[in-house]
Design a protein around this nucleic acid. Sequence first.
RNA 1: GGCGAUGUAGCUCAGUUGGUUAGAGCGAACGGUUCAUACCCGUUAGGUCAUCAGUUCAAGUCUGAUCAUCGCCA
Length: 652
Amino acid sequence: MRYVVTTPIYYPNSVPHIGTALTTVLADVMTRYRKLTGDHPFFLTGTDENGLKLKEAAEAAGEGPTAFVERISTQFREVWDGLDIRYDDFIRTTEPRHILATQRFFQLLQEKGHIFMSTYEGWYDVSSETFFKEADLIDGKSPDGNPVRWVSEDNYFFRLSAFAQPLLDHIQQNPKFLLPSGRRNEVISFIQQGLRDVCISRSNPGWGIEVPGDPSRVIYVWFDAVINYLTASGWPEGNWQDKWPASVHLMAKDIFTRFHATLWPAMLMAAELPLPKSVVGHGWLLLGGEKISKSKGNVVAPLVVGKDLAERSGATSEVAIDALRYVLAAVAPFEADTGFSLEELDRKYNSDLANDLGNALNRTLSMANRFLDGIVPEGGVDSEALEAVNTAKSEFEAAMEDFRVDKACFAAIEAIRFLNKYIDTKAPWALAKSGDDSLPRVMKSALFVLQSTEGLFRPMMPRVADEIARQLNTAPTQSWAEIGDVSRLVPGTKLQAPTPIFPRLDLGQGRDQAAPKPSSVKPAKPATVHTETMIQETAPSAPIDQITIEDFAKVQLKVARIFEAQPLEGSDKLMKLQVMIGEERRQIIAGIRKNYTPEELIGRQIVVVANLKPAVLRGADSQGMLLAAVDAEGGAILLQPEKEAPEGAKVR
RNA sequence: GGCGAUGUAGCUCAGUUGGUUAGAGCGAACGGUUCAUACCCGUUAGGUCAUCAGUUCAAGUCUGAUCAUCGCCA
């Protein structure tokens, strides 16, 4: 039986953002840890490709649904690959294996008498694939503000109501079945309020998994989606019991209660199949106090963040990606949501990785090279070093048993904090000066802690761990049991010269390294602030008509972030930008090609006029304009918040 | 409307079953050190533990009310 870790299958009407990356990174860390502990993990992720919404999204994109999901699914895999996510299986719910498993599952429930026909009526919200009653609607729209349509049709229902008590019993008897505990309570009260039978089919729109024996209908997308976890085991054929039940289903809290903690376990009970061991619904990462919205697009693209971190710090792209992985894992919310920002990433990069971990490795190797000719000495290590490593190791293990990757990160960094204190206390430089014979033992203790942390950090930062092992000239940690084993530090081994892994970020400079140098701005007269669509400068000598504060208040200025930039075809000045104003995506055409390349623009914050009447420039829609100063040559100099502003912040 | 959660130092968060001077990390200030990526180590940070009222010898930790934010359900 393998240790099976799953993420949700992501819905490809969007692209991966920092929130989906969080779940996936956590799953990857758990998997890599289990690989070290010898639990033969199996890591499953994928894309959820059925559903009416997808078909409509494809049509809106002017594509056939097949081509559409193919393209987006590939995007997900590219991002996961870029984040060094090592999934064992990437399932797509349009694959034959899943269609077969889903239909078989449906039939199985029919055979067991848990499916019946009934008339289904209600207001259907395609966007969230959910039905609402009349009373649920707000101003004729769904509670989420999405348009709804009236649907009335005969459909198949799953007798969910029959499983309320069995579910409650199972939850009570298995304290680790639903986590965290706060959300488990939510599920209990949700079930206690009574479960309604759920409609699990829809009339066939020409996309989706057909109900077996009834091609006029397709299986409800959520019903088929959760089955993916079982599909991947190979069920019902072959040795599926090797990969089912899952050890842990990991997801964000929004799809926890209804689907993963209620519907899916009930379906499994109905099919008389084993339930997953644990279902974990972690909290959200809040950006600027707001939830990251899946349906609105990528608020922050993970690979852009990684690339940006690499460029600003000077770290290699592999190290920057590992750093992003570590920070996500370290701040991962569990019970509640947690506030996050790109500044937070920077701070944690500097303090935990550059100052603590990187510097500890660097100073230790530097001393070893100076005082011991770079040779690992004979003899043992101090008991306090051993104790610190063992403490970190066991706390790491305990944290992982509870799926608390954040606590595991803390345990690992604690070992490094110990090391820095230890070095200060022992002062090897003083020992070397006085010829004290305890020097080899102290240095070996320090090297030992470093080697141990190589293993501790490996699940979060595999490339960094490799680099630490390289500099220590020791074999990369292959198994968890090796951590804390002093004999792995072979006397006589020649250490490498220290090379900084995490170049320190200069946070005082802000995040705008790409900003034009002050010298390129003519200081003689104030640059005229204008918008990019007005290439010609307003005459600087002409007196500017005064306006009232009310006039100015009509202009809504907001902070936006550029996440995509490309030259506009058919123009040599215009750039086509995709920006996020908070959660809202806009396309803006800007005449800024003279001073900026697309690469310089992506990831930056800018200021835009948010309520400008949209215009068509060179055939492309421009939904707003950005603010820029004008340099002597008439080129644009972007206005940018002096420091990172909340996403979508008002400017006044 | 019902149920529930959250509200703790500038920031992000811990605070088991109520019990000595409320903690951590970051940031800040000051001091120390020099092996090191201006790093590390130490000290300090005057937090009405949202507010009010209770229970108790004792409450951040229990009860009730209020305010704010959020979630689930209807």
